[in-house]
Amino acid sequence: MFENLQLLIDYPSLGVDLVANGLMIGAIFALAAFGMALVWGVLGIINIAQGEFVMLGGFVALTAAGLGVPPLLTIPLAAIALFILGWGLYRLVIFRVVDRDLFVSLLATFGLSIILQQLSNEIFGADVRTLETGLGTMVLFDGQIVLAEIKLVSFVTALTVGLALWAFLKRARLGQAIRATAQNARAARILGIDTDRVYAATYALNAALCGAAGSLVVMAWTIHPYIGLPYTVRSFLVVIVAGLGNIVAVITAGLGLGALENLAGFILGAEYQIAFVFVLMVILLVGRNFLLRRKREYLE
């Protein structure tokens, strides 16, 4: 551990390289986390199948590329395909658990995640897959920092989608309806908002966001049917840190998590990289609880 720290001090550019690469993967966490925050905030459901949507997005991108679609165009395709799937899943399963106990929805989405895993294993096979984009690598500052262009593409895409989502929620009719439903579903219904449709749209939108993330994952990293869980866990972590209603906070938390995780992987060793994520989550939850308690005391 100390020799790794020493290494970082001796070669400061290494730290920049690590942070830069971490930010790129962090952008993907943020994308999946947007969706989780939306569904959690509006439907009151913690969607355990989040990572499976990411994985499916990757497989849609692969399949489309196999049919001759240029790799970068598979990003919107994956989003559209997952939007339809998300809508269908809402009509089949999710609408039954919306107003129920949190446990019921956890169980339902957990079941969904298993079904989606096994189905993709059956349809696409268990192999590890990647999609080559043909994009090159950027070498900056005389080889001190090296970035794969596809990672940059995914970074920019994630930020753009985040901003578009923010604008959509602020300005569009449906976006306003989603926010209204999140604030008070009953009041929204009284005011004539078809909350059932809002729920369906929100869940489908979440799936679409994950689908886009998945298509980026398959182009920059790898996918296979069982890759979902880490993405679910990280979205969860990002949402805990950022809260439900704040898109800028989600982006910041996602990017921060990516960078921190990569640095931790370097300093502590790769074996502790994911352990670090969980320890961080516990620390944040405890810290948050502590702050909240002080606030509660003031209120009393």
């Binding site: 290494l7 993967i25 990293w221 992987g265 370097f266 790769a270 990289q273």
Partner: peptide
Amino acid sequence: ELNDMSATLAK
């Protein structure tokens, strides 16, 4: 579960 080796590759 790891899907990224960039920390190791930096070393």
